[in-house]
Design a protein around this nucleic acid. Sequence first.
DNA 1: CACGCTATTGGATGTGCGACCAATAGACAA
DNA 2: TTGTCTATTGGTCGCACATCCAATAGCGTG
Lengths: 210, 210
Amino acid sequence: MSSSVQPKRVRKNPEARRAEIVAAAAGIALAEGLECITMRRVAEELDVRPGLISHYFPVAEELVAEAFGTAAGGELAELLPEADAALPAVRRLARFLGRTEGRRYDELSRLWLNARHLSRFRPALRERVGQQEALWRDGLTALLRDGVESGEFRTPDPHVTAIQLLVVLDGLGAHANTDRTGRPAAITGMAYALAERELALPPGALGAPH
Amino acid sequence: MSSSVQPKRVRKNPEARRAEIVAAAAGIALAEGLECITMRRVAEELDVRPGLISHYFPVAEELVAEAFGTAAGGELAELLPEADAALPAVRRLARFLGRTEGRRYDELSRLWLNARHLSRFRPALRERVGQQEALWRDGLTALLRDGVESGEFRTPDPHVTAIQLLVVLDGLGAHANTDRTGRPAAITGMAYALAERELALPPGALGAPH
DNA sequence: CACGCTATTGGATGTGCGACCAATAGACAA
DNA sequence: TTGTCTATTGGTCGCACATCCAATAGCGTG
């Protein structure tokens, strides 16, 4: 028969293995969905036996929660890079909004949608969703506050504006699994419009909404 | 032994039975979630054997799609009752928005969230979600158009305004499974604010956002 | 009242899952 | 090199599910 499989075991130190498992699970979460994170599926990804996964995560739900946190946290870091801290706030915001449109962001929209729904049944995940929500909100709030302090923006409450922006992005992202062809620009540009209005920026200041 | 169960079979005509099954499934969808619609669960609800359900719905996914359509369609009919057709559009819109806030609407938010996510994996459901989306959009558009024609509102494109409103409602509803205590009024009132702004209504014209 | 149609049952089959555990074999220290 | 520790295996168990099917019994027709 075929001998394409090598039952050779590779022994790694626990922290590294654990990180590897979470990373694999996060990848599955983004590409296939949180419900595809199963002991068997993750094990297959790492070419390892399922028992090993459940050794590191005795309860599957923990791994799902951890995977979501890693995936969402990683994406946030890409959307609001620390490295950009020196840039003008307007420019950072424009970049942020720019990244939240287009197909590239769909994967992330789907992940949030997935997590928001699944957290209905999984307390550990719900916890993580709350944490990530706070991180996203605070990150965006900090950006807006920077802009206000530097005089680029004007808004009575950066915190509220940040939440409003995220609500609109959630609303737009909710349709990530639906057909959105022919959606008018007045819809796809809602986040831009809201930001410009709430921050007292001239129309178009954040870049062409398309 | 216990004889609390009566293996008495009740024989109904196919259309009635089918409708009964869909209704039961729709109830489960709203109360527990679409993934709880299983042959067994629905059968239990109707005090019937699982095989009967799969007789009427040979493929489970069809029942899920049908149940969602029934549940969402029924709720829409409550939100935009035909009986209100004679009322002023402003009043109808105020009612609509009023019903979309508060705990009562959470069940429906959860259903939409559920369906939007699950339709990622279930083509038949995705189809239904698209249909219901159109129904909601068209219903709200008709309301706005009425208001424009009667001179109550002013908006260049009722269709676009309707979608914008629904996007905001989706965004707010996305958090139906999350803790939202202490959410500022500027967030909970976003739909009111958007409607008043886009329809050129004076602030508060649609009722106190809280 | 008897009969036939078919709605309904009861059970079987196969799949994928989480959870659990004793046995095994790498890697590292003595 | 030998021995020990433990990361990893390979397998088992029970559960819930969709799907399928032959047998059964309610109901309307005649």
